[in-house]
Write a protein that binds this DNA or RNA. Structure first.
Length: 802
RNA sequence: GCGAGUAUGGCGGAACUGGUAGACGCGCUAGUCUUAGGAACUAGUGCCUUCGGCAUGCAGGUUCGAUUCCUGUUACUCGCACCA
């Protein structure tokens, strides 16, 4: 329709006027909570990648509504974050203003594409009415001893005088100014997420996440089971180490401590080469995380003179070293070094000329270590290990562990890569952390009655000289009274990370206007949980983990109805530029959805994005292919001219098959093949001189989730029934989708030589006989011995000859 | 290095629990209609060829039969990156 702009506006107005997509808490209806990640409303406007995810979930929402579910499909804004702040620093426009404008643009764009969001539940994480509850929940973390302040390392740009995220300091260089990033220690708020490591693993059982999403969660948590044991220091004192390879304990030839750990500080008074050790510690602290973790750096380190450690199993005295490959915040910050069976230890030993003792037999170790990945499960036996020599690795693992436990110096321990969540940001544009520091009372939460702690207006958005949030420069914000004792106190000026607001927004949608609670238990119970959550691959690890942690905590203190509030999580592939590269301004390959809507209409854009390929895979944009979808919609439109005043389907089998395929495919994310089924149907109907009203209306309903405007218009134009958005999704008749006559292939030695027509379920003998009569079959079997004939019912015949 | 994913015509991609590989769309070729351009419609379109053969990254294996299952291998993409 050339006047698609008019039609789209008309139906968008109809949906608004009729509140068609607003979810009400009706009783007696099955609920379906359909969620798609809310966007960060950037200045660039909506991206075609957003459109892909929103359309897919819109298809689901529209089908589910027509299937009689009470569907909640909300939208909102994740509007705190660094880009708005950087924009503010450059242009001196308050982020609040910029965000407001961006939200207006985004919303208008979304409306123009016809997503069936329930706009009555819209909110932004930056609304004081919303972040009041983010702050309130932080206070619950604090009250349950889940939030604490601790020294952490931060990436510090000495030029910008700003704390940087890991993303902004890749390669050890500040993304903004290019300076070398330093490591600084800062006291920051932390959430005890590591306490939830096991629960977060365990909770995956109560979800229906896509397998690759579950794996992402598991890898991020990074559980490893092992043994922690105590090591005595010659002349008194001890420390512990964690290992997953206790079977190699007799191979210890030295220990390595983390230069940034507490242990070395404790030992310092006994260290003889203090200067050298201190110098190494200093050097390490200057290296950014990236430098430290980069491979092929060699194994730097220094011998700690004056202290030796004792191997608890054989009493052997071995040296202690410092090495920056050991991390202060993982395990105990100290490792036992077995160069024969760990490649890092091997390299370290070679570099520092240390002893190497092989304790597991099975391979030469002169070139590289014989590691657990190579010896486990292969029946390898221990050597040089006193009474454990001769045992298999697996036997030794268990026996040595038990021995250490019996002696009271070892215990089975799980370690996790996942750390506590660093929750403070020295930024302006975030939720203020609602804490007050009083010299007498320590940290005191802001009383509920004083929430929210509203972000004040500031003149300067730059961080202060010493890298604090710009809030620290506002005296009237910082200075306050202690809520406990009334003495003069100071307000926390750090703000929360962007992950905070997005960790619970899906709960707020269930009860978005509540001003007494973040959401009422009653409403949360009504909606139960998110049934289907869709978003980008890049968020399947961290955002999802933070959100699950947040929910599990709320569950444990009785504030949400389920331990897992998200049932299915799926993620879609990216839309790449037409050159196959990621869309970016600098590459000039960005496609603006507005231009497509203007040139082809929203329906064409939607159909194209669903047709582009496998939903879960990346796919490049192709404007020619888009035109094909436009052509398809025009065909559907022209088909209307053939409608005659008849009921019933003109092709029962085809129609029933199509209904089944479109329903099943859409609900299992195979949006592309659902559309292809509709194209086949249209191609068939086109061949007929006339089509019935039922033919056409069913086609329009099936296409409606993808192309909601044009289908409503055609439905109205040909007076086929009430608006599709108020209609019921068609059913199919299982018995009618099977063809009675089937054509099957006949193979000779696995090669297709012809085909025969059979009746459904025709018996094998008769099928065989038909096959043998084929000219081509006779030709290829003539003069040969028929070894056997395989008949697969309704599928294929294969004749094997010699 | 570890983990995950992907690999099918000129292109995007189909193919149920192993059963006619290339659905559907794009592009391309020829034709019809048009003053022309475009649109629309019709027919064709994996490769090599005479029967026929060869084709799902590569090399093997299992099977009457493999894009699908198994072993090995290569390339690319993403995530994590010295996690003891």
């Amino acid at each position: 329709m050339s006047n698609y702009t008019e039609i789209e506006k008309k139906w968008q107005k109809y949906w608004d006027d009729h509140h068609t997509f607003e979810a009400k808490e009706e009783k007696g209806k099955k609920t379906f909570y359909d969620l798609v990640e809310f966007p960060y409303p950037s200045g660039e406007g909506l991206h075609v990648g957003h459109v892909k995810g929103y359309t897919a979930q819109d298809v689901i929402a529209r089908i589910k509504r027509m299937q009689g579910y009470n569907v909640l499909y909300p939208m909102g804004w994740d509007a705190f974050g660094a880009p708005a702040e950087r924009f503010a620093i450059r242009k001196h426009i308050h982020p609040r203003e910029a965000v407001k404008r961006n939200i207006e643009t985004f919303k208008a764009q979304m409306k123009s594409i016809g997503f069936s969001f329930d706009w009555s539940r819209e909110f932004s994480t930056t609304d004081p009415e919303y972040y009041k509850w983010t702050q309130w929940q932080f206070i619950q973390f604090f009250k349950h001893d889940m939030a604490y302040k601790a020294d952490t390392k931060v990436n510090w740009c000495p030029t910008c005088k700003m704390v940087l995220s890991n993303e902004d300091s890749q390669g050890g260089v500040c993304e903004q100014c290019g300076s070398q990033v330093e490591q600084r220690t800062k006291s920051q708020w932390m959430l005890r997420m590591s306490d939830y490591a096991e629960d977060l693993l365990d909770g995956l059982k109560d979800t229906n996440f896509a397998e690759r999403v579950k794996l992402g969660q598991i890898n991020w948590i990074g559980k490893s089971e092992g043994v922690e044991f105590d090591v005595q220091i010659v002349g008194g004192g001890n420390f512990s180490v964690f290992t997953t390879c206790i079977e190699t304990i007799y191979g210890i030839t030295f220990f390595v401590l983390a230069p940034d750990g507490k242990l070395i500080q404790e030992l310092m008074p006994r260290v003889k080469n203090k200067k050298e050790v201190e110098k190494y510690i200093k050097e390490t602290s200057l290296k950014s995380t990236m430098d430290r973790t980069e491979l092929n750096k060699g194994k730097s380190g220094v011998l700690v003179e004056g202290v030796k450690a004792i191997n608890p199993v054989n009493g052997k005295e071995v040296p202690i070293y410092l090495g920056d490959f050991v991390l202060g915040d993982y395990g105990t910050g100290a490792v036992m070094a077995v160069p024969s069976h760990d490649q890092r230890d091997f390299e370290y030993a070679k570099e520092h000329d240390l002893e190497i003792i092989q304790v597991i037999d099975g391979r030469d170790i002169s070139e590289c270590a014989f590691e657990k990945g190579d010896y486990l499960g292969k029946g390898c036996k221990l050597i040089n290990s006193e009474e454990y020599s001769g045992l298999t690795v697996e036997e030794a693992k268990e026996k040595i562990t038990t021995m250490l436990e019996d002696k009271g110096i070892g215990r089975r321990v799980n370690n996790y890569k996942m750390r506590d969540w660093v929750f403070g940001r020295q930024r302006f544009w975030g939720e203020p952390i609602p804490m007050i520091h009083c010299d007498k009372c320590g940290w005191v939460p802001v009383p509920d009655s004083d929430l929210p702690v509203v972000l004040p207006d500031v003149v300067n958005y730059e961080p202060t000289e010493d890298g604090e949030s710009p809030l620290a420069a506002i005296e009237e914000f910082v200075n306050c009274k202690c809520p406990k004792c009334g003495a003069a106190a100071k307000r926390e000026t750090d703000t929360m990370p962007q992950w905070a607001g997005s960790s619970w927004y899906f709960l707020r949608y269930m009860d978005p206007h509540n001003n007494k609670e973040f959401a009422s238990m009653k409403k949360m119970k009504y909606w139960n949980r998110v049934d289907w959550y869709n978003g980008g691959m890049e968020h399947t690890a961290r955002h999802l983990l933070y959100a699950r942690f947040w929910v599990q905590f709320l569950y444990n203190i009785g504030l949400v109805p389920n331990k897992e509030m998200i049932w299915t999580r799926v993620s879609h592939g990216m839309i790449l530029g037409s050159n196959g590269e990621k869309m970016s301004k600098s590459k000039g390959n960005v496609v603006n959805p507005d231009e497509i809507v203007n040139a082809y209409g929203a329906d064409t854009l939607r159909v194209y994005e669903m047709f582009i390929g496998d939903y879960t895979q990346d796919a490049p944009w192709n404007t020619d292919s888009l035109k094909g979808c436009d052509r398809f919609l025009r065909k559907v439109e022209r088909l209307g001219e053939k409608v005659v005043d008849k009921t019933g389907y003109s092709q029962e089998v085809l129609m029933n098959k199509t209904i089944k395929k479109v329903t099943d495919d859409n609900l299992s994310m195979k949006y592309n093949t659902a559309i292809s089924a509709l194209m086949i149907l249209v191609n068939e109907l086109e061949k007929q001189d006339e089509i019935t009203k039922d033919d056409y209306r069913t086609l329009l309903i099936l296409l409606n989730p993808d192309a909601p405007h044009i289908t409503e218009e055609l439905n109205e134009k040909y007076k086929l029934g009430k608006p599709i958005c108020e209609s019921t999704w068609p059913d199919y008749d299982e018995e009618k989708i099977v063809d009675e006559a089937i054509t099957i292939a006949v193979q000779v030695n696995g090669k297709v030589r012809g085909s025969i027509d059979i009746v459904k379920d025709e018996d094998d003998e008769s099928v065989k006989a038909k096959a043998m009569k084929l000219e081509n079959v006779i030709k290829f079997t003539e003069g040969k011995e028929i070894v056997k004939t395989i008949v697969i019912k309704n599928k294929i015949v294969n004749i094997v000859v010699k």
